[in-house]
Nucleic acid binder design. Sequence first.
DNA 1: CGCGACGTTGATTTGCCTCAACGATTGTGG
DNA 2: CCACAATCGTTGAGGCAAATCAACGTCGCG
Lengths: 188, 188
Amino acid sequence: MSHSLLRDHFRKFVSLSENDLNIICKYFKPLSVTKGEFLLTQNDICKFEGFVINGCFRIYSIDKKGNEKNLYIAIEDWWLMDIDSFMNGSPSELNIEALETSDILVISKTDKDFLYESLPITNKLFRIMSQKAVVAWQKRLIRNHCLTAKERHQHFINTYPKIVSRLSDRQIAKYLGISHEFLSKIKK
Amino acid sequence: MSHSLLRDHFRKFVSLSENDLNIICKYFKPLSVTKGEFLLTQNDICKFEGFVINGCFRIYSIDKKGNEKNLYIAIEDWWLMDIDSFMNGSPSELNIEALETSDILVISKTDKDFLYESLPITNKLFRIMSQKAVVAWQKRLIRNHCLTAKERHQHFINTYPKIVSRLSDRQIAKYLGISHEFLSKIKK
DNA sequence: CGCGACGTTGATTTGCCTCAACGATTGTGG
DNA sequence: CCACAATCGTTGAGGCAAATCAACGTCGCG
């Protein structure tokens, strides 16, 4: 069943009945994406929330000098979206690109809103997930302020060994916020 | 009524009945803090969530070289806590210091958990608040990657004019992640 | 009054960027 | 299957943004 990873994912945060899980998962539709394909590009309005079953994506923004900055990398068990654009219907500043041919599950904005209203426990579920996300972003910011590029790279390798092996150094550099040339020099 | 700011705050996110608001606010207890006092120090376990009625705080971490980095500044209408420590009961890596004599409202971990269980709409309320927080942290990280110190300072001034006028430049520098000497040079 | 915190300035250093060049690998079309 | 282009990782030279260290005058406060 293609939803089993999603079911297990939800169960990490709150205990849900089989019935509730079935209701929630029903709204998540399978979608296959080929390498290089974009799920979202700048100025789009993000109308979906995606959960990665397998494969790999990068979510990135482009600064005014044209440099790409990877906001985060998403592999199995991660979420894909521009949460700002999704919540507010505002034009996105982000791009979502498949780095590998991937399978994901997608829920539309309409269905998500319906779920929140019709199944109140989803509010608890996504409250807890969002609160954990806040923690993660805060910690990332602190690392960016307190650690050198070398230390951040080391931390990335230790924390996400599964991601490292599947990414080019160029993509890692864009995640760390440094140039790929400097990353190369660091690695010695 | 000391809870009116909190009531208005909650109403920005979801529409709540007077009765629900009364129930929620009942658990938030007034607390006065004098300038220089600490609500939390490193290795404490954060057992409260605070909402600022008036005054000013900084939430900061200390890196291994002993430098303080302000994670954020909280004035009226902002929240005070180490969300990681509060959620997980883990020792905090943060410090919360009153920069002015302040009045806040505080809810204990026990009461908050009780609220989530007894009044389900609080899950929706804090889900939405947390999701907005995620957006804010993501944008802050992007600014840190894409903007120079000068641009970040300009953005801070434009975005938080009320905070700027109440903070020393040293505290602003700790928020921007730069040395106070360099901030001084930037300002010309 | 004297002390500590503050903002400022200058000299020097450092972390990281930019640009350019190179060979190695991968992918693509003929 | 080969030829070519594109992408990749690496290295070096030079430059810039920001840190560090030290010194100074000012101010608020005990």
